[in-house]
Computed example of a mutant assay.
Amino acid sequence: MKSLKSLYLKLLMAGIFLTLLSACHDDDDNEGPMPDPEPRQYRYQVSVTNLTNAQPMSPFAVVLHNEGMLWNIGESANDAMENLAESGDKSQVLELDVVLASSSGADILMPGSSETIEVVVADIEPVYLSAATMLVNTNDAFTGINALDVSHLAMNESISLVMGSYDAGTEKNSEIAETIPGPAAGGEGFNAERDDVDFVAAHPGVVSMDDGLTQSVLTQAHRFDNPTIRVTVTRIE
Rank of each mutant, 00 (worst) to 15 (best):
S3D: 08
S3A: 09
K5F: 09
S6H: 09
S6T: 12
L12W: 09
A14E: 09
G15P: 00
F17C: 10
L18N: 08
T19S: 15
L20P: 00
G32K: 14
P35Q: 13
P35C: 07
D36T: 07
P37M: 07
E38C: 00
Q41P: 00
Q41D: 08
Y42A: 10
R43Q: 11
Y44W: 02
Y44F: 13
Q45C: 03
N50W: 10
T52C: 06
N53K: 15
A54M: 09
P59E: 11
V62I: 12
H65A: 08
N66R: 11
N66M: 03
E67N: 10
I73N: 03
G74Q: 06
G74W: 07
S76A: 12
A77I: 02
D79S: 11
D79N: 13
D79W: 06
L84M: 10
A85P: 01
D89P: 01
S91A: 14
S91Y: 08
V93T: 02
V93Q: 02
L94P: 01
V98G: 00
V98F: 12
V98Y: 10
A101L: 08
S103E: 11
S104F: 02
S104K: 15
G105P: 01
A106M: 07
A106P: 00
D107H: 08
M110S: 06
E118V: 00
I124D: 10
Y128W: 13
S130G: 05
A131R: 13
M134R: 14
V136W: 10
N137R: 09
N139I: 00
N139F: 00
D140V: 05
D140H: 04
T143K: 15
L148E: 03
D149L: 08
D149K: 14
V150I: 13
L153N: 03
N156V: 00
E157S: 09
E157I: 03
E157D: 10
I159T: 11
S160R: 15
M163C: 14
A168I: 03
E171V: 06
E175N: 08
I176S: 04
E178N: 06
E178C: 05
I180Y: 07
G187M: 05
E188M: 13
E188G: 03
A192N: 05
R194E: 07
D196H: 10
D198H: 07
H203T: 02
P204A: 07
S208V: 02
M209S: 11
D210S: 04
L213D: 04
S216F: 01
V217S: 01
L218G: 02
L218N: 04
Q220R: 14
T232Y: 06
V233I: 14
